[in-house]
Design a protein around this nucleic acid. Structure first.
Lengths: 203, 203
DNA sequence: TTTGAAATTGAACCCGGTACGCTTTATGCT
DNA sequence: AGCATAAAGCGTACCGGGTTCAATTTCAAA
């Protein structure tokens, strides 16, 4: 396989666009920057920009795609779906200190500052819900699987919001990490054992 | 309070726009109809249309706003939040047979047929999540309340999807209703007691 | 009946996104 | 090395949702 000057240039262009976009958004806010400006600042035509990123949102969100379904389908044997997801998010939380803080923080602030992008994140999670439901389904039309998938994505969305909110407020990454770890456990315990003790009828 | 010729005309105009829109969308599909066409068919200027409906989505979704938060805050004394919500959705499911089927069905088919509108529904539910979380919060920053709110909205979204899907596939309203009633109970039982029995680690 | 606020309008405009046809450039083949 | 080809990029015009603004109509209150 050749080095491929062409492919290198392509990835380079893509990165240049994404970085330019994130920088401009961080400076002036997502809604205050037009895609034309991004394209021009990246030295590229608008059409070319949209050849790399399907929508304006993708400029920010494409780099951050998760796939919960894979965590379930590729889990270690003997581990339950819930166990696998809990372990994955615990591991992320505990390893949060080692992430490139600057890049993450800029992205988080841009996202948190724009309703449109927050909506985009919700949409992405809604999309994952279907894949996760498919991965959890034990028989066609398994209602419990769909409910579980919905609840898991809802929980992850909530935890991510808390995490983002703390980062956006200036908390150091390490601290946000270990607080997240605790919250992951609270959340998965509730998923497994329910809210009857906290919010249900006394019975 | 006067009858108000002006206000009557206003509501009349609003309804004319909404009905025209729903009819056109049902005939040709949401994405194939332009807001200009809706405005023209309703005998009104585009600007006027947007004075009544903030976005194109609102033409379909504004009539269908729920408010889960109110169900919680105005629940009967002695009833838990989860109990109140379960009762409310059971009551809806059991009374489904008495709804105006034609109007509902048209709307459901339009919504189900357009990714953009489905996304809009998700957005609306996400918005409710915040209000519901606020209604459930027992102290500032109550993580459990936010998790519960997220899971409830996720569950309701899922149940609504099942319900819509069945209606869109031609199931009679009464049948879809009683199936929904059973699903409501399954869903709230899982919310109260968790998924450990179905999906957790054997322990 | 005058007066003022609310409703409505047309037209121009902004922005995200697409269609089309054209140039440039890397690459694989001879 | 040279050439054909396909990919990458470009300019422009266009579309549809949504806003702005100044001008006009219409109800209602004094």
């Amino acid at each position: 396989m050749m080095a491929g000057l062409r492919e290198r240039k392509k990835e380079q262009t893509r990165r240049r666009i994404a970085e330019t976009a994130l920088r401009l958004f961080a400076e002036r806010g997502y809604d205050e920057v037009t895609v034309n400006e991004v394209a021009e600042a990246a030295g590229v035509a608008k059409v070319t920009l949209f050849a790399y990123f399907a929508t304006k949102e993708c400029l920010v969100l494409d780099e951050v795609k998760e796939d919960m379904a894979r965590i379930v389908t590729e889990r270690a044997p003997g581990l339950s779906p819930l166990g696998a997801l809990r372990a994955h998010y615990r591991a992320f939380a505990e390893g949060a200190g080692e992430i490139d803080a600057d890049s993450l923080l800029a992205r988080v602030r841009v996202i948190s500052g724009s309703p449109a992008l927050l909506a985009g994140v919700h949409q992405a999670h809604a999309g994952q819900r279907y894949e996760l439901a498919a991965a959890l389904e034990r028989e066609p039309g398994d209602l419990t699987a769909h409910l579980l998938a919905a609840q898991i994505t809802a929980v992850i969305t909530t935890l991510q919001e808390q995490f983002f909110h703390r980062l956006a407020c200036g908390a150091p990454l390490a601290e946000a990490g270990w607080r997240l770890a605790g919250e992951v456990d609270v959340a998965f315990d509730l998923l497994e054992h329910g809210f009857a003790a906290s919010y249900g009828d006394k019975s």
